[in-house]
Amino acid sequence: MKSDNMSNLIKNGAIWGFIVLELIFFQVAGEFWSLSERAFMDLDNMLLLLKQSAPIGIIAVGMTVIMINGNIDLSVGAIYALCAIVMLDSMSWPFMESLGDWAIPLAWLFALLTGAVLGLINGVIVWKTGVDAFIVTLGSMLGYRGLVFMYNGENPTYHLNWTMVDIAEWDIFGVETPALVFLAVALIVWFVMTRTVHGRNAYAVGNNREAAVNAAIRVGPHMLINFVLIGFLAALSAVTFYSGSGSVNPNDGMLFELWAITAVVLGGTKLIGGAGSIVGTFGGVIAIQLLRKGLGHIGADTATVNLVIGLILIAVLFLDRQLNVKGKEELKV
């Protein structure tokens, strides 16, 4: 029991320890190698970091729920791009233009609805066909991305509305809208996962699906709700980001699914489901963004950043495995 608590503490605390380590490292290393005069651990810099981690962070929160369920969703990047297009393009529709700034909430609504519907499609297929979520969303990833290209070919879709940009850059004490949305989403979903019946059932379904079925939890509809949730969150992520930028390329959001999964796994959620936490994912998102930003701060290029993140991911999973092995009694497989 005691050692159980202890190893849980190590597991849950590991990501935060890692973040502290990163902060110290980049602060110190920055003194020697940085091209800029500014310190790494600067308040503005940290707020910017939170804002930059929002797009993937919001998706990663949804991915955590999906992965606790024992599923995976590879289509989030494509949903993200498609929702961004719907939002920006709808602003140029004649009846929307006639609405003036009232078109903005309507455009958001369209985008969020699109995301929810795309998620719903994934969920229905997973539920009704029983095909593995990996395969289903691999297919829908390709399909949804196809829709993105059908919309406007290789061309970017853009619509700049200054009111919308203002909203996107609005802030409380320097915390801008995207960061606020990310924090709010994390908080709400954390609450759902820890306090509500639906959240607790999510753990049960991922941990022992047969037990969940035997306990009369309706697994199919349960998963469906979670797929709608992640579709909605992918759309929300697109809404927060593209309200500010106003232009979307058909290739945007590619590899987002993999970054989200990386963050979730770094945060301690099991790939097989049943265990994980939103708090951990939040840590994972921050850790990745810190690494990107920090390595940039000391002058590394993108390729190096990816290499380092990849290595760290493998190292973390290896450590996690070591922590989970029950000593020598373990059956070797």
């Binding site: 019946v197 607790r200 059932n201 753990y203 049960a204 941990n207 022992n208 047969e210 037990a211 969940a212 035997n214 306990a215 009369a216 939890i217 049943g274 265990a275």
Partner: peptide
């Protein structure tokens, strides 16, 4: 054993019918 090992005893006993 039809139990979810990551959950608490209480959650397992009331699995599928947690008091709301």
């Amino acid at each position: 054993l039809s139990l979810a090992t990551e959950l608490s005893v209480a959650e397992n006993i009331y699995l599928g019918e947690l008091p709301r």
